[in-house]
Deep mutational scan, measured.
Amino acid sequence: MTGIVKWFNADKGFGFITPDDGSKDVFVHFSAIQNDGYKSLDEGQKVSFTIESGAKGPAAGNVTSL
Protein backbone atom coordinates (compact mmCIF):
# COMPACT_ATOMS: atom_id res chain seq x y z
CA MET A 1 0.00 0.00 0.00
CA THR A 2 1.03 3.63 -0.28
CA GLY A 3 0.89 6.66 1.98
CA ILE A 4 2.43 9.94 3.07
CA VAL A 5 4.84 10.36 5.99
CA LYS A 6 2.90 12.32 8.63
CA TRP A 7 6.01 12.88 10.75
CA PHE A 8 9.30 11.14 11.48
CA ASN A 9 11.73 11.85 14.33
CA ALA A 10 15.20 10.88 13.09
CA ASP A 11 16.70 11.23 16.59
CA LYS A 12 14.26 8.71 18.05
CA GLY A 13 14.04 6.59 14.88
CA PHE A 14 10.28 6.40 14.44
CA GLY A 15 7.20 8.19 13.15
CA PHE A 16 3.85 7.67 11.46
CA ILE A 17 2.57 7.18 7.91
CA THR A 18 -0.93 8.24 6.80
CA PRO A 19 -2.20 5.56 4.35
CA ASP A 20 -3.69 6.78 1.05
CA ASP A 21 -6.76 4.58 1.61
CA GLY A 22 -7.85 6.74 4.56
CA SER A 23 -7.23 4.09 7.21
CA LYS A 24 -5.66 4.82 10.61
CA ASP A 25 -2.09 6.20 10.75
CA VAL A 26 0.55 3.46 10.89
CA PHE A 27 3.63 3.41 13.15
CA VAL A 28 6.97 3.18 11.31
CA HIS A 29 10.36 2.29 12.86
CA PHE A 30 13.62 3.17 11.11
CA SER A 31 14.51 -0.54 10.85
CA ALA A 32 11.60 -0.99 8.37
CA ILE A 33 13.08 1.54 5.89
CA GLN A 34 14.50 -0.28 2.86
CA ASN A 35 17.23 2.06 1.62
CA ASP A 36 21.00 2.13 1.82
CA GLY A 37 22.74 4.52 4.17
CA TYR A 38 20.96 6.71 6.70
CA LYS A 39 17.47 5.35 7.37
CA SER A 40 15.16 8.34 7.75
CA LEU A 41 11.95 9.71 6.23
CA ASP A 42 10.83 13.26 5.51
CA GLU A 43 7.45 14.74 6.43
CA GLY A 44 5.20 14.68 3.36
CA GLN A 45 7.30 12.01 1.60
CA LYS A 46 5.34 9.48 -0.52
CA VAL A 47 6.15 5.89 0.46
CA SER A 48 5.15 2.31 -0.28
CA PHE A 49 4.84 -0.12 2.64
CA THR A 50 3.30 -3.31 3.98
CA ILE A 51 1.38 -3.74 7.24
CA GLU A 52 3.14 -5.95 9.77
CA SER A 53 2.00 -7.10 13.20
CA GLY A 54 4.13 -5.14 15.67
CA ALA A 55 4.49 -5.54 19.44
CA LYS A 56 2.06 -2.66 20.04
CA GLY A 57 -0.25 -3.19 17.06
CA PRO A 58 0.05 -2.64 13.31
CA ALA A 59 3.35 -1.26 12.04
CA ALA A 60 4.73 -0.42 8.61
CA GLY A 61 7.23 -2.84 7.07
CA ASN A 62 9.30 -2.87 3.87
CA VAL A 63 9.09 0.94 3.59
CA THR A 64 10.43 2.37 0.32
CA SER A 65 10.22 5.92 -1.01
CA LEU A 66 8.31 6.53 -4.23
Rank of each mutant, 00 (worst) to 15 (best):
M1K: 11
M1P: 05
M1E: 05
M1W: 09
M1Y: 14
M1L: 15
T2H: 08
T2P: 04
T2I: 11
G3Q: 00
G3D: 00
G3T: 00
G3N: 00
G3W: 01
I4W: 13
I4L: 08
I4G: 03
I4N: 05
I4Q: 08
I4P: 01
V5H: 01
V5A: 02
V5T: 03
V5F: 02
K6N: 06
K6D: 03
K6R: 10
W7F: 09
W7L: 03
W7P: 00
N9P: 02
N9H: 09
N9S: 11
N9R: 12
N9E: 05
A10I: 12
A10C: 09
A10E: 08
A10S: 14
A10W: 10
D11R: 13
D11H: 13
D11E: 15
K12I: 10
K12L: 11
K12E: 05
K12D: 04
G13M: 03
G13I: 02
G13V: 01
G13S: 03
F14G: 02
F14R: 02
F14W: 15
G15D: 00
G15L: 02
G15P: 00
G15Q: 00
G15E: 01
G15C: 01
G15N: 00
G15F: 02
F16T: 03
F16S: 03
F16Q: 04
F16P: 00
I17S: 00
I17E: 00
I17A: 01
I17H: 00
I17F: 02
T18I: 15
T18N: 05
T18W: 07
P19G: 03
P19K: 03
P19D: 02
P19L: 07
P19V: 05
P19S: 04
D20R: 04
D20Q: 07
D21S: 08
D21G: 08
G22E: 05
G22P: 03
S23P: 05
K24P: 14
K24Y: 09
K24A: 13
D25C: 06
D25N: 07
D25S: 05
V26H: 02
V26Q: 02
V26Y: 05
F27E: 02
F27K: 02
F27R: 03
F27V: 03
V28E: 00
V28R: 00
V28S: 01
V28Q: 00
V28N: 00
H29G: 04
H29L: 05
F30T: 07
F30Y: 13
F30W: 15
F30L: 07
F30C: 09
S31Q: 06
S31W: 07
S31C: 07
S31E: 05
A32F: 04
A32M: 06
A32V: 10
A32T: 07
I33W: 06
I33N: 03
I33G: 02
I33C: 04
Q34M: 13
Q34V: 14
Q34F: 09
Q34T: 13
N35W: 10
N35T: 15
N35M: 15
N35I: 14
D36I: 11
D36G: 15
G37A: 09
G37N: 10
G37C: 12
G37F: 09
G37P: 09
G37S: 11
G37D: 10
Y38S: 11
Y38P: 14
Y38N: 13
Y38D: 10
Y38I: 12
Y38G: 09
Y38R: 06
K39N: 07
K39D: 05
K39E: 05
K39I: 07
K39H: 09
K39L: 09
S40K: 15
S40C: 15
S40Y: 15
L41F: 05
L41Q: 01
D42H: 15
D42E: 13
D42K: 13
D42G: 13
D42P: 08
E43M: 15
E43A: 15
E43H: 15
E43P: 15
E43V: 13
E43L: 13
E43Y: 14
G44T: 03
G44I: 02
G44E: 03
G44S: 05
G44Y: 05
Q45G: 08
Q45P: 01
Q45K: 05
Q45Y: 05
K46M: 11
K46Q: 11
K46F: 09
V47W: 01
V47S: 00
S48K: 12
S48F: 12
S48A: 14
F49G: 00
F49S: 00
F49W: 02
T50G: 05
T50C: 11
T50Q: 09
T50P: 01
I51C: 07
I51R: 07
E52Q: 11
E52P: 03
E52H: 10
E52N: 09
E52V: 15
S53Y: 13
S53Q: 14
G54I: 05
G54Y: 11
G54Q: 14
A55C: 12
A55Y: 13
A55D: 14
K56Q: 09
K56C: 14
K56P: 08
G57Y: 08
G57E: 04
G57F: 08
G57H: 08
G57M: 06
G57L: 07
P58S: 09
P58N: 10
P58Y: 10
P58E: 09
P58I: 12
P58G: 05
P58W: 09
A59T: 15
A59N: 10
A59D: 04
A60L: 02
A60N: 01
A60G: 04
G61N: 13
G61Y: 14
G61C: 14
G61H: 14
G61P: 02
N62H: 13
N62G: 08
V63I: 05
V63M: 02
V63E: 01
T64W: 11
T64N: 11
T64D: 05
S65P: 14
S65Y: 12
S65I: 15
S65Q: 13
L66Y: 09
L66D: 07
